[in-house]
Amino acid sequence: MTEASNKSSIAVVIPCYQVRDHIEGVLDAIPNYVDGIFCIDDACPDKSGDFIEKTSIDNRVTVLRHSCNKGVGGAMITGFDAASKAGYDIAVKIDGDGQMDPDLICKFVAPIVSGDADYTKGNRFWDSRSVAEMPKVRLFGNAVLGFMSKFSSGYWRVMDPTNGFLAIHLSVFDLLDTSKIASNYFFESDMLFRLNLVRAVVLDIPMQAKYGDEVSNLKIHKILFPFLLGHGKNSFKRFIYNYFLRDFSLASLEFILGPLLVCFGAFFGAWHWYLSAFEGQQATSGQVMLAALPMIVGLQLILSALNFDITNEPKLPIHRLMKRDW
């Protein structure tokens, strides 16, 4: 860690659910520069919290318990909230199954400490070697989900949205409405959407995917449609809030007129195609142009609005503007 990092206190948050066989090794591997560790027993049937309290001699460890299972997102929110109330500056979330290397924590924290980001997350797609080693179902699933996440979150340069290795400045976390963040496996993607609403800067951290013989938890047929629905809702809410409530610009008009023109041209053309095919009424050149031109202009407006949205990604970390002692 750099000298600057010593000015910031760092907490690690570990959701614990059926990780009893791995959690001891994870805790032993957490670096010394980490100031606090919060382990959340998410109503674990293996009683991970009791096991940690009996076996761990690390005085940095605090065990928190849920009376009922709230999911990995709910456990993360509990840990981040506890770290914020305890006065820590930055919180890092890692899993308790041993698949995330604690030695990488410094890479996730460094951009936040230097003031270059509010939130950092892992990206397993950065290295072509890592992609080649990734199971094909994970590769396909994460690619599809990553593309959908770009629309819903507004972070067009961020990939691998389901990656759970992440860090956040807690002054930014305090700005989020945590009661609305998804508590299931959609929480990483939902976090990005919530972060965009407060204009937080998000940065990808390259990391290598390590997959052995473990069975993938990513069941495409089970999560694709729920994730698609979640991304669709978030996309709609983000565009309404960013382009019609908080601000109104030329892109706002383009987002309205573009789809309207495309729909008008498509319906007008389809109707006259029907009349030509089944009623014998030949379409005139004017009718053809009246169908084609709105679609062309509308598509250009949509592309222009999307280009504005891409370039409008947050660039100034908001935690630098917050009054918080370091």
Rank of each mutant, 00 (worst) to 15 (best):
D204S: 15
S183M: 05
M191H: 13
I205R: 14
E133P: 05
R129Y: 11
M159H: 14
L139M: 08
M207P: 05
N184Q: 04
G164Y: 01
K150E: 04
V198T: 10
I205S: 07
Y155H: 05
S152C: 14
I205Y: 09
A143R: 13
D127T: 00
V131S: 06
V198A: 10
G164F: 01
F186W: 13
K219F: 09
R124N: 11
N196W: 02
P206C: 08
L175T: 09
D174M: 10
T178M: 00
W126R: 11
L145Q: 05
N217I: 02
A167I: 01
Y155T: 01
S189M: 13
P161M: 04
L176S: 04
G164P: 01
E214K: 15
L203P: 00
S171E: 12
K121R: 13
F151V: 01
S130E: 04
N196I: 00
N196M: 02
R194T: 07
H221C: 06
V131P: 05
N217E: 09
S183A: 04
K210L: 06
A167M: 04
Y211V: 11
L218E: 07
L203D: 02
F147N: 06
G146E: 03
D204L: 02
V201C: 02
I220D: 03
F165I: 02
F187C: 09
S179V: 03
S171C: 09
F186H: 12
Y211H: 15
A200K: 14
M159E: 12
D190M: 10
F193W: 15
P206H: 13
V201G: 01
L192H: 14
S128L: 10
N123V: 00
N196K: 05
I168F: 03
D127E: 04
G212T: 03
L195W: 11
A167K: 06
K210M: 05
L176D: 00
N163A: 13
G154I: 01
L139P: 00
V158F: 03
I168E: 00
L170Q: 03
I181W: 03
F125W: 06
F173N: 00
P161W: 09
V201R: 12
M159K: 12
V158N: 04
P206T: 08
L195R: 09
A143G: 02
F147M: 07
L218D: 07
K121T: 02
W126D: 11
P135G: 02
D174R: 15
F187Y: 14
H169V: 01
E188D: 15
I220P: 08
A182S: 15
F186P: 03
F151Q: 12
V131G: 01
P161N: 11
F151M: 12
G122W: 03
Y185H: 15
L139S: 06
F147T: 02
S130P: 10
Y211T: 09
S153V: 04
S171R: 13
M159F: 12
S179W: 01
S179Q: 07
M134Y: 11
D160W: 07
V172R: 13
F140R: 15
P135A: 00
F187M: 10
S130D: 07
